[in-house]
Design a protein around this nucleic acid. Sequence first.
DNA 1: GACATTACTTACATTTTTGTATGTATCCTA
DNA 2: TAGGATACATACAAAAATGTAAGTAATGTC
Lengths: 118, 118
Amino acid sequence: MSKIKETSTNFANKQALSNKCLEVYSTNIIGGQWSLPICYALLSGKLRFGEIKKVLPNITERMLTLQLKKLEKNKVLTRKIYAEVPPRVEYELTSIGYELKPIIKELENWAKKHKKML
Amino acid sequence: MSKIKETSTNFANKQALSNKCLEVYSTNIIGGQWSLPICYALLSGKLRFGEIKKVLPNITERMLTLQLKKLEKNKVLTRKIYAEVPPRVEYELTSIGYELKPIIKELENWAKKHKKML
DNA sequence: GACATTACTTACATTTTTGTATGTATCCTA
DNA sequence: TAGGATACATACAAAAATGTAAGTAATGTC
């Protein structure tokens, strides 16, 4: 992954905040540019690597791989590899992954209100 | 602010995503390490610069200033300066700022579930 | 035997975010 | 007149996130 420096102040701050504020705990998992869009795409069912790429045309393969790994590590989604050639890999939200839905809903809700305000 | 390069691919991607996904629109505003904790602190009423600092002991003055500026620019909070010496500045959530509450609630909710899962 | 397909990996470069250290203005108080 | 208090600003440095370009492995198809 992207080698986080566990000695950095930033790392310590993130840890501390994460322990103190539950919201931060969550955003440490689903933050980042692409996590939420990926989860959003998966809300309607499992998808292959290439299919996610099509839904998010601007994402690079590198970023997609990294984010999927992180989300898998945090048990937000699962990875199923089929022993085929060419390879086939399917990604699916776990139950905790599906429970991101209310968060996404509220974020969308807020965005609408905020846009209306302008 | 931190001089964003409007010619970068990253900038273009953020714009594009922000337009397509409402969730991303929101996280572009309240993302970042300190935004949510600051808003959370302000949910219980207006606070002075120094008071926010006390609530978030690890934040640097620089970061606090930057985040407050960004949040003010996005109309999440307001800044009121009192012509006193030493200076007094109060920060208060706007009505759209207060409406972040459901988002924070869902994030906390999810965090609890996620922790329980481990 | 060259080529396409798929889901990656790796090395490297750029951009963005965050942190460190120091300085500033004004007035009051000791 | 030297500090103290407050809310910043500024220059610089480090770390983290993201992007670019190229390569890989296995197999089927032309």
